[in-house]
Design a protein around this nucleic acid. Structure first.
Lengths: 152, 152
DNA sequence: CCGAAATAGGATGTCAATGTCCTGTTTTTG
DNA sequence: CAAAAACAGGACATTGACATCCTATTTCGG
């Protein structure tokens, strides 16, 4: 009956849904290509099971994962971990929208951004670049001793 | 009666409130140090007047602007445009929260972030850095021919 | 073919962000 | 001092993100 968020947002920059999708996909990558049951992923990644199911359906529609019903079914990556970047996941769930034109739609100037929105767009670009630079496979190879998702 | 957002979010990364705060502060910087009335700022920046008033109150509490009541009063910057960065404004309204520890609070490892959250934090860092690198004064000096906020 | 295993998806609930409105309080000017 | 100017702030409305639950529907194994 209590519908307050189960977990505090990691950062206001990322939606809870992005966080959940990333956890799930990293979990899948660690076990790729074996399919995993949604309930198991939810437990391991500490994501609400019913909500994770919705998130995974979204990822399926974007071609990130495959869902298989029935005994022995479950969720698996649609591509190899070396073919998926963090950006692919983020964009599938909550696309990074670069600023293409001034949000104040004055027609007194062309498509050129004012200085403020240009700077904001540059910040978005740097984030986009950071996310594009790492594949799931590289995440798993990370020398960091803490395994992804902090489980073991 | 219609309470749908007046303007589409510029990017899911930035809240509407951050966008409004930045527009208002840039407007103030262009006219610094003369105080401006909230209603005038709202009109020039295309922000709902009553909501802008709330945003400005928040900025006052964070020491970004000064509010003066009565005839001849209005809103003015609490510091020179060369003393305020975009990051100062963003953090006053919707602080960028860097990821300090794994959001899955397993105690099986220390404060070290797993590879996924380390990458996410690096993306936040790059955005933070981008925002810290520009002061309001530098925004106004921008060689870009479109004046900030696209008005004139 | 039957039953168990899984996902599919609709209906519904809650809350914070966004936005409006109205009345109070402070300050300045004449 | 009186009146107008301007912010202060509480009450309230709406919406989308987050979340749950329950009932299909599909698929595999024996």
């Amino acid at each position: 009956m209590d519908h307050r968020p189960l977990f505090r947002l990691v950062s206001f920059m990322f939606s809870q849904t992005v966080e959940y999708a990333l956890r799930a996909v990293v979990h899948l990558a660690m076990r790729s290509p074996a399919p995993q049951k949604t309930a198991k992923i939810a437990e391991a990644t500490q994501v609400p099971p019913a909500y994770l199911a919705k998130v995974l359906q979204g990822l399926k529609e974007k071609g990130i994962v495959k869902l298989q019903r029935g005994i022995g079914g479950g969720v698996s990556l649609a591509h190899g971990p070396d073919q998926l970047t963090i950006l692919d996941i983020v964009n599938a769930v909550d696309p990074i929208q670069r600023i293409k034109h001034c949000p104040l739609d004055l027609k007194t100037h062309g498509a050129r951004l004012c200085a403020l929105h240009f700077r904001m767009d540059q910040a978005l670009l740097s984030m986009e670049t950071a996310f594009r630079s790492t594949t799931l496979a590289e995440l798993l190879e990370d020398p960091n001793p803490s395994v992804p998702l902090c489980d073991h």
